[in-house]
Amino acid sequence: MLKLRNIHKSFGDLKVLKGVDLEIKQGEVKAIIGPSGTGKSTLLRCINYLEKPDAGEIMIDTLELNAKTITKQEIYELRKSTAMVFQNFNLFKNKTVLENIIESLVLIKKMDRSTAIEIGIDILKKVGIEEKKNVYPSKLSGGQQQRVAIGRALAVNPKVILFDEPTSSLDPELVGEVLELIKKLAKENMTMVIVTHEMSFAKDVADKIVFMDEGKILQEGTPEEIFSSVTNPRISKFISRLSK
């Protein structure tokens, strides 16, 4: 469903992605793990073009985009079929919880407001925060904010949701509620790509785990393959360091 082919990205002289190929099937949950600074987040941001890849192709269903020839219109199309959940939530500070959810429905999908609100309320029920619908984000806990952010991503009705370290800036006691919600979405066969440092969560929720190192994919496999029968010394070093 989503295919990346030979994605390259540099920041100045620093080569961050050195030719990444990745394929995500419909309904699949893929976790991307690996040491810091290996381009995991950059890869994710390239998928919805918050970073512009220098070269490579992105295919999502029938949409085929080449970094060399991509147009503005194609970027908007791509963003309509993907949605991003950020480490720092990035909820619209000047909008209430409900307004955050319906913004894309009203503005991008041109729905009338009452239909959008109906859908918005349904989404808020799903992420379990309906009672806060008229509250501004600054009044919410981190975990609540991230659940609203996931709701905002769902409102786009994307083919895939991209999670960029969704629990990294949460207090430890708030991590659980966000992970539970992501698990729930996984059960509903939502297609997701998750960059995470939560190894046990990755093991739990992901169909496939991708290990990235130095701008490339080192290994891809089921959680068992990655965590138990480790063949690559770099991966075993990374995993043993984390489990200490």
């Binding site: 919805n48 073009y49 918050l50 908007y76 963003r79 309509k80 993907t82 949605a83 991003m84 950020f86 720092n88 990035n90 909820l91 619209f92 500070k93 913004e103 894309s104 991008i108 905002r152 991503a153 409102a155 786009v156």
Partner: peptide
């Protein structure tokens, strides 16, 4: 991040 969130939803 505010601008990025805007762009990310299209």
């Amino acid at each position: 991040g505010q601008m990025e969130a805007c762009l990310s939803i299209g």
